[in-house]
């Protein structure tokens, strides 16, 4: 391998890594701003909206056994269209007119970090 190739590879790799970090920070900010009000800052479903009378528990994203049952595409779909699209409660709002496609993808990845799990394929 020539010196030039190593330098290029290093530059590319560093560039790639920093792009990923920026996205991860942004995803956390997105989650805390839009989702934590119901799902809680740590994703346990305990945001400030969830009082004793709240009609339906927002999903706890740290429960891997539940989150594994959803594919990444399922999660993206429910974020964009809201609960009813997957026969869940309308208390889960539709964010498709608010968030960009890239922002929703970043959120899906962030939820995977919270559950520390991978979804079923598809």
């Amino acid at each position: 391998m020539s010196k030039a190739t190593i330098v290029t590879a290093t530059v590319l790799l560093t560039g790639f890594l920093s792009a990923v970090t920026v996205q991860a920070d942004e995803a956390e900010q997105l989650f805390n701003f839009y989702c934590a009000q119901c799902h809680g800052v740590g994703g346990k479903g305990d945001g400030p909206n969830v009082t004793a009378d709240f009609p339906v528990d927002p999903r706890n994203f740290t429960k891997a056994d539940e989150m594994e049952k959803l594919s990444d595409a399922d999660i993206k779909n429910v974020i964009l269209e809201g609960g009813p699209v997957v026969s869940k409660s309308p208390m889960m709002p539709p964010w498709g007119k608010t968030l960009s496609d890239e922002q929703v993808d970043a959120l899906v990845q962030y939820l995977r970090k919270l559950c520390n799990c991978v979804g079923k394929p598809g």
Partner: peptide
């Protein structure tokens, strides 16, 4: 719609969200 999930309103049992 989830309006009542984030807004207090004159509801009977559930009085709405707080954010």
């Amino acid at each position: 719609m989830p309006c009542s999930g984030c807004h207090e309103f004159p509801g009977k049992k559930f009085k709405g969200g707080r954010s």
